[in-house]
Design a protein around this nucleic acid. Structure first.
Lengths: 165, 165
DNA sequence: TATGAAACCTAGTGGTC
DNA sequence: GACCACTAGGTTTCATA
């Protein structure tokens, strides 16, 4: 071991190259595509693609592979953004623990602005949504909520575009 | 071919059974899992699982398979909910067409409440986010916007839970 | 250090019962 | 839906640049 001018990456990193991004693009489009088919798109052999994918998984760039489901077909027809106002010093950890317990919660984050958090909720119908919002309201750290119900979904992306910085 | 008392489904439908939901659960957890492995979880042979998955795809329940990427690692560190206020009679189609053109737009929907639409935006940083919001503001049908920036992501579900109705 | 070719083994797929 | 046979894809090894 010797000290260089260059810093050695602690996590096996280095920036994603054009090929990595192309592979991610392919996987975003079809995560069950074969390595050979991906390889033919990015001019690489199947083993080479597999190695890159393994590396991307190890680095945490790839978090996993999931199925894209049509919420409506599954009976999750109602969606809402719920702004949550909390008591003075509610920690993010407390909120996370609470919201994580709801299967109806798709996403939740603390936010800037008047509200403390925005929670995205999926429900079967308005009655179900109402029930979930009531339960959130009943959480000890919640002062009040303000719901914005989705009328028409306009855009819904598979995942993030693998655009280079 | 003969006429029965039973009506033949035009779309190959019928409700999802317990096994279908279990399969979707497995795929949500790992979309690249083998049919054999899924089968062992749901007590079914690999071909049987494949046929069910094919059927679920044909029915539109399964929309596709994608990779889950860590936004932060890819350089998409900043996220915001942008409420959009539109001119009198802006059609959802107009909005969809406009928002679809932004790679930074993750999701967009028309909503109840004061605003006409909520647009979820992913950006590299606050400067980038600001630029995107400016562009949205410049859309001919947009009167004004109100952005809520994400501070800490608390919950982010892979996809919808395959809970029966 | 990353790749390609080949070998080997596991999984996908269509037919049959 | 299971079983079987066949094909295709995943994974490891090894040689190479």
């Amino acid at each position: 071991m010797h000290a260089d001018a260059e810093v050695v990456e602690p996590t096996p990193s280095g920036p994603l190259d054009r090929i990595d991004l192309a592979i991610l693009d392919q996987l975003a489009h079809d995560a069950r595509s074969s390595f050979a088919r991906i390889g033919s798109q990015v001019n690489l052999s199947a083993p080479a693609v597999k190695r890159r994918v393994d590396r991307l998984k190890a680095r945490g760039v790839i978090d996993g592979f999931t199925v894209r489901l049509d919420p409506a077909v599954l009976g999750w027809a109602t969606e809402a953004y719920v702004e949550v106002y909390c008591t003075g010093s509610t920690s993010p950890a407390t909120m996370r623990q609470a919201f994580d317990a709801y299967p109806e919660v798709v996403a939740a984050s603390t936010v800037t602005g008047e509200a403390d958090a925005v929670v995205q909720v999926r429900a079967h119908d308005v009655r179900h949504l109402d029930e979930v919002v009531e339960r959130i309201n009943a959480e000890p750290f919640v002062v009040r909520t303000r719901s914005t119900v989705v009328l028409t979904p306009l855009v819904r992306r598979p995942d993030l575009p693998a655009t280079p910085r």
